[in-house]
Deep mutational scan, measured.
Amino acid sequence: TEKQERAIEYIRRLGYSEEEARRILKKANGNPDLAKEIARRIG
């Protein structure tokens, strides 16, 4: 989804690889607090 793409872009800007960014997002899917934090940061 567009939100996922924005989140991946944001995480990659922090210096993670695409693969790492996707792994972090997968974790965020099972972790509402982390997901909220990422969403808050990407606006």
Rank of each mutant, 00 (worst) to 15 (best):
A39Y: 02
S17M: 03
R13D: 11
G30N: 09
R12A: 05
N31W: 05
A7N: 02
I8T: 03
Y10P: 01
E37N: 08
I8F: 07
I24R: 00
D33R: 11
E37A: 14
K36E: 07
R40I: 13
R40W: 07
A35Q: 02
A7E: 03
K27R: 14
S17V: 02
S17I: 02
R6F: 08
Q4G: 08
G43D: 12
L14Q: 04
S17R: 04
A21G: 03
A39L: 04
I42T: 12
E18V: 08
E20N: 06
Y16S: 01
E5M: 13
D33P: 03
G30I: 02
K27G: 07
G43L: 15
S17Q: 03
K26Q: 12
I38P: 01
R12P: 00
E5L: 14
I42L: 15
E5K: 14
Y10K: 03
R6I: 08
K36C: 11
I38Y: 06
A21V: 05
R23P: 00
N29R: 13
G15R: 01
R12C: 08
E9V: 07
K3R: 13
E2H: 08
E5D: 11
A7G: 03
L34R: 09
R6T: 10
R41I: 11
T1Q: 12
A7V: 11
R6N: 12
R13K: 14
N29F: 10
R22V: 07
S17Y: 02
E20P: 00
Y10D: 07
K3E: 15
L34T: 06
A35E: 02
E37W: 10
I42P: 10
E20S: 07
E37Y: 09
R13H: 13
A7I: 10
K36M: 15
K27V: 14
L34K: 08
K26S: 10
R22C: 09
T1I: 13
A35K: 02
Q4I: 15
E18N: 07
G43R: 15
R40S: 09
G43F: 15
A39S: 04
E5T: 09
I24N: 00
N29P: 01
T1M: 11
Q4P: 05
A7M: 06
I38W: 05
E18A: 09
N31S: 07
S17P: 04
N31L: 06
L34F: 06
E19Y: 14
E18D: 11
S17T: 14
L25E: 00
L25P: 00
D33M: 08
Y16C: 05
Y16M: 06
P32I: 11
L34C: 08
E19L: 12
E19S: 12
Q4M: 13
K3L: 15
E2L: 08
E19I: 10
A21I: 07
E2Q: 12
A28Q: 02
R23E: 13
P32E: 07
Y10W: 08
Y10A: 08
Y16E: 00
L14K: 03
E9R: 11
I11T: 00
G30A: 04
N31C: 07
